[in-house]
Amino acid sequence: MSLNVSNLTIHHGAICAVNSVSLALPTGRLAAIIGSNGAGKTTLLRALSGLNKPTHGEITWMGESILGKKAENLVRRGISHVSEGKSVIPQLTVKENLELGAIWRRNKKELSESLDQVITIFPRLGERLAQRADTLSGGERQMVAIGRALMSKPRLLLLDEPSLGLAPLVIEQIFQIIRDLTTSMRITVVLVEQNAMGALKIADLGIVLNLGRVVAVDHADALIANPAVRAAYLGY
């Protein structure tokens, strides 16, 4: 298991947003965390990347505890987080947004290699490198956000609602790319999604959160087949 979360509890003030959640994810697998609004999905993800401080519990990555480590240091350990809502910096160009993810590596050659790699994955960004990020479409912005995370050469990619506000066709394309990242580059992915069906279809493991607790965890296919999950989250 490369990512291990045990009994993780996180409070927002007096409110318990995540309540003793445990999960384990092997290298190169994709876990989808689904659940309704306020289920604690984002809070959990932000704890994994060091943006939130948990109250109790333990998180280990590659056998070492990463609990309480700062986000900027976890990037150096291969954990990249794409936060909710197309996290790009609108005032910067596409190229600058992408380069941002590789600055800490202080290596010009690796930076340009990573840039080439990201452009191979998202060819559309290659045509838009000099444009300011606020001139892009929603889908393109999400590509920049994921591309920026890839520039850090992550081993664990945390994605918060990459489908938010995108057209169905674009969502399908983005999900396909996320799947390819795990399959071909062996990146471990934790995907938080409202779009439960789309996420479960590409995931290996599915986790259902409700009011901060894990209410179901299973192979993604099994969750899709599970009548209770279908009724509550998949809408049929």
Binding site: E72, L92, G101
Partner: peptide, 20 residues
Amino acid sequence: LSLRAAAYAPEIARLSGIKV
């Protein structure tokens, strides 16, 4: 670039490994 990123969006800067 780090200065601009940290000014415009400190959280994205941190997630990119910049010591804000």
